[in-house]
Amino acid sequence: MTSSDPQAQVQELRRQLQSLLEAAKANERKLDRFDALERRLVAVGSMEELVNLLLVDCRADFNLDAAELWLLDPDEELRRALPALPMVKAPQLLDNHAPLKALFGAARTTRLVGAADAPLLAQAFGEGSPVRSAALLPLIRQGLLIGSLHFGSRDPERYDAESGTKFLDRLSAIAAIAIESMLNRERLRRAGMTDGLTGVHNRRYFDHRSLIEFSQAVRHRYPLACLFLDIDHFKAINDRHGHPAGDEVLRQVGGLIQRSLRTGDLAARYGGEEFVVLLPRTDLAGACEVAERIRLMVQEAPFVTPEGGTLSATLSVGLAMLPAQATSFAELLGAADRALYDAKRGGRNRTVADEAAGDAAAASP
């Protein structure tokens, strides 16, 4: 301020004050937006809601041109959970830390990058992206880098390297906590409905889900097939090869059953060496085909033991269709159990359909 004119000096001071007030108001509005986002992150109730909040709502609320979420998923937990979720935009799932190390190196701090870092922008947002400046936020929990959140803009001045990152650092910390919380919730949910040995659903989950499938089939009058599967001579496998080998057979049989089913079918370990499968909207011929496919896969599989050897196994299958006048799911389950008994009595390693299955199939519309 070099002017000696007092009035000019006052005007200049007013201009500077006005500029400071506008900057303060802008920061206050920014703080309010970040505060509202943090509250929503803390309150999310599902992984679907969390992902949509970070990738869709953030983009709209902060006037971004791009938003990306990378999540480390070496054990494919998220790959199993996310495909069924109706998300506008899905996160990128990483098998290892290499892409994250390429972005953050050893520093693992928020990075503001501009057009001069075009290769880094292309890596973060993909080749051909219109992004010209970006904020790259590391997601860290308990000292571990679990992912990254990327905000991008076409404006090359939006994320200037000299700008402060206080708000962004806080946001990345809250987002990391929310992601970890959702992952832990998903693990607990899966643990509560999954058999720890075989990876298929457990009896508790089956008892709940089967009543839903039964009521839907009765209400909408579509066929519902039930398979009871039992590994033949399983006690002899344990006695001859040891319980660890028996556990491996159970685990591998569970995997073969799961790979044989469609989305929407239900497989569960019912108890011991018994498995049960529900096939909604499947007629008798289709159910027989699934049962035989599973039986033959088990018959032909070399089951690998913990010692590296192999052994053979077979299973018997009882099949039943939802009775036309059924009043409870127990009727269908009981019919499949009786058919399994007939398969065992008939020589094992075979599929037997309950006598009423043909009548139920004929009565279906």
Rank of each mutant, 00 (worst) to 15 (best):
A361T: 13
R240E: 09
G255F: 11
R154T: 11
R251Y: 05
Q252D: 13
R132H: 14
G164H: 00
L168V: 01
T194A: 03
L103W: 01
T109D: 15
S4N: 07
A268H: 04
A343R: 09
V200L: 12
R108S: 08
A343G: 12
Q18Y: 08
L31S: 11
I177C: 00
N349D: 12
G334Y: 04
L278W: 13
Q142R: 13
T109C: 07
R15N: 11
H97S: 12
K30D: 02
G152K: 02
R158Q: 07
H243S: 05
L53S: 06
L94F: 03
A301P: 00
A102D: 11
A122Y: 08
L319E: 06
T165V: 05
N63Q: 12
T314H: 08
I146P: 05
Q7R: 00
S181V: 01
A8V: 04
L197S: 11
A36S: 10
F125S: 02
F104G: 03
H201G: 04
Q258M: 01
A115M: 05
R158N: 05
Q216N: 06
L261F: 15
R295L: 03
D5I: 14
N52D: 08
L168T: 00
F62R: 07
L64R: 04
R108Q: 13
P306W: 12
A353N: 13
P302M: 06
E292C: 09
Q252M: 06
D5L: 10
T310Q: 14
F228K: 14
D75E: 05
L82F: 14
L37W: 03
E77Y: 12
F329R: 10
A26M: 07
N27R: 07
E186C: 03
R33F: 02
L85V: 10
I212R: 15
D57M: 10
L50E: 03
I146E: 08
R345M: 08
L100K: 11
L183Q: 03
H243R: 08
F125E: 01
T165S: 07
D354A: 06
T310D: 07
I140N: 00
G114R: 10
D342A: 02
A362T: 14
S210A: 15
